[in-house]
């Protein structure tokens, strides 16, 4: 009797389950679980778990293998009082300056190439292409480029510079960081430019036409039509360049290896972890960097929330209004 009963209930459970699976709600749950579990699992394993572990490690004096010792906040104190670390944070300023130069150049060339230019797509392509070259290939190219008497020195000698007066680009501490920053500008300027061209192209064409009918010159078009409409993306890129400069890594890693005062915060952290095996201290550095990035990001969110709320439409309306005013003024004169 008992046996029959259990199979009966089993049957109903299975039956109910099948019924539920066929229902809309059941289907929903099944597809949600099956579609989200893998990406979420990957996110947890490769992003959050390492992050939490890093947090834990930062309180220990430890290597990859062997015993570890809890030392509280000592790693953080060591990092913040380390001379080398402070020096590397100063380098951030070079990279920040470089990225502002990069944005200015990108804006200049984007504005130019958004208008009819002979060979425009050729220029756009050649300026952009460095972005597609891998970091490691760039490392070799620029070590070659900056070598004494090689590419850069030869080109400068065409411009009547004497070799004796030129510095060793990667060895001289006065110029080596600038030389490295220049490679990063070389790589990313074109990418910024393409983004800006995209933004400029999305502005209503009629605005330019009505402006040029009014005899507005290029500077006027740039100042009052182009710049307002791409303000958002420019400011976003300026803020992103702060976090980018804080985590600058590639140029010194592939070109100088961080020698002669070119070690950025990120590279210092990398060497701390992999060369010196000071895992705890490296983790503390990573978390300090994360804290800085988080602060900048929160600042960015606040700026965009309260700073300005212009959408593209508002801008075009504003500009039209302004153009109309200008026209009225000229009419009076």
């Amino acid at each position: 009797m008992g046996k029959i009963n259990t199979t009966a209930t089993k049957g109903t459970i299975l039956h109910r389950l099948l019924k539920w699976l066929r229902s809309g709600k059941g289907q929903r749950t099944v597809i949600m679980i099956s579609f989200m579990s893998i990406p979420l699992l990957l996110l947890i394993i490769f992003a959050y778990l390492p992050f939490l572990k890093m947090f834990e490690f930062s309180f220990y004096n430890m290597k990859y293998i062997g015993e570890r010792k809890f030392i509280g906040f000592d790693n953080y104190r060591d990092v913040l009082t380390d001379k080398e670390v402070m020096n590397s944070l100063k380098l951030t300023l070079y990279y920040l300056l470089g990225s502002f130069v990069q944005l200015a150049l990108a804006l200049y060339y984007a504005t130019m190439l958004s208008f009819k230019t002979k060979g425009g797509s050729f220029f756009k392509g050649t300026i952009f292409f460095p972005y597609l070259i891998s970091g490691i290939a760039m490392g070799f190219m620029f070590r070659f480029f900056y070598t004494r008497g090689f590419v850069l020195d030869t080109v400068l000698s065409w411009l009547r510079f004497e070799l004796e007066n030129l510095p060793y680009w990667l060895r001289d501490k006065n110029v080596n960081n600038m030389a490295l920053v220049a490679t990063s500008v070389w790589k990313f300027m074109g990418q910024n430019m393409v983004l800006f061209i995209g933004a400029i192209m999305s502005v209503d064409r009629e605005l330019y036409e009505s402006a040029s009918l009014d005899g507005a010159n290029r500077w006027y078009q740039f100042r009052y039509i182009i710049l307002p409409s791409i303000k958002t993306i420019v400011i976003l890129n300026m803020i992103l360049s702060i976090t980018g400069s804080l985590s600058a890594f590639e140029p010194p890693y592939v070109i100088t290896g961080g020698t002669r005062g070119t070690s950025t915060f990120f590279l210092l952290m990398h060497n701390m972890a992999h060369r010196h095996q000071k895992v705890g201290k490296a983790s503390a550095m990573a978390l300090i960097l994360f804290g800085l990035i988080l602060m900048v990001t929160i600042g960015q969110k606040l700026i965009f929330k309260y700073g300005f709320t212009d959408s593209n439409e508002d801008i075009s309306q504003k500009t039209t209004r302004m153009l109309r005013k200008q026209r009225a003024k000229e009419g009076k004169q």
């Binding site: 996110l43 394993i45 490769f46 992003a47 959050y48 778990l49 390492p50 992050f51 572990k53 890093m54 490690f57 990859y64 985590s247 890594f249 990120f266 952290m269 990398h270 972890a273 895992v279 490296a282 983790s283 550095m285 990573a286 960097l289 994360f290 990035i293 988080l294 990001t297």
Partner: peptide, 17 residues
Amino acid sequence: FATLIPGIATQVTVYQI
């Protein structure tokens, strides 16, 4: 939020995983 975590920095612990 995960995009804010500096990728290469976490490789110390990703390596262990």
